[in-house]
């Protein structure tokens, strides 16, 4: 009987794990850690500075975004600076491959770090970055990613550089400024 109850408590535990695993598995389905080289976020297209210093952005950008999204939608507070549309305006790129260049997309910029850190976000299913008169009028100038962008990522020298750039313990420091 002892062993039976052990099996049963294991089953209960297993249940919990399966439920949790199912949840996280579904929500992080495309996550792929492993042998992806350190990220190399594409340069912002516009502006010299981000809405916050870079180290703050790196650390807290999702808090800012989530906070702003709740404020905008649920409380009706508009005009604050962490707008996803603003990120699109500075960070998004167009490419003839994507909707014939009619859509700007943040995907490459955000995905650099996210695929490395196994984070998956669904924002761009809805926040498409479509061009609209008045918003993103500079679209024509917004360059597509360099064609060799994929290979760039595998560039050893660049990765070493980035490692230093991102690693707070290295001499260059993690400030990235």
């Amino acid at each position: 009987m002892r062993s039976a109850s052990r099996i049963l408590s294991l089953t209960i535990l297993g249940f919990a794990i399966v439920i949790m695993g199912l949840g996280s598995g579904l929500s992080a389905a495309p996550a792929q850690a492993g042998e992806v080289p350190l990220p190399n976020p594409a340069k912002a297209f516009k502006g010299e500075q981000c809405v916050e210093p870079i180290d703050v952005m790196r650390r807290d950008h999702f808090e800012f975004l989530k906070h702003q999204r709740d404020e905008t939608l649920r409380e009706g507070i508009r005009g604050k600076k962490y707008s996803l549309n603003a990120c699109i305006d500075c960070h998004a790129v167009t490419s003839p491959d994507i909707a014939g260049g009619k859509l700007r997309t943040l995907k490459p910029f955000c995905a650099e770090c996210h695929s490395y850190a196994a984070v998956s976000i669904d924002c761009f299913e809805c926040h498409s970055g479509a061009v609209q008169p008045g918003i993103g009028s500079e679209i024509g100038k917004q360059s597509a990613l360099p064609p060799n962008h994929e290979q760039l990522k595998a560039d050893k020298a660049l990765i070493t550089l980035l490692k230093g750039h991102l690693d707070p313990t290295s001499p260059q420091g993690g400030t990235g400024q």
Partner: peptide
């Protein structure tokens, strides 16, 4: 949902404790 590896990577990306 993160494996320890992912967690380290996240800390690294976010600028770690120092930042």
């Amino acid at each position: 949902d993160s494996s320890p590896v992912d967690a380290t990577k996240r800390t690294l990306l976010k600028g770690g404790v120092a930042a």
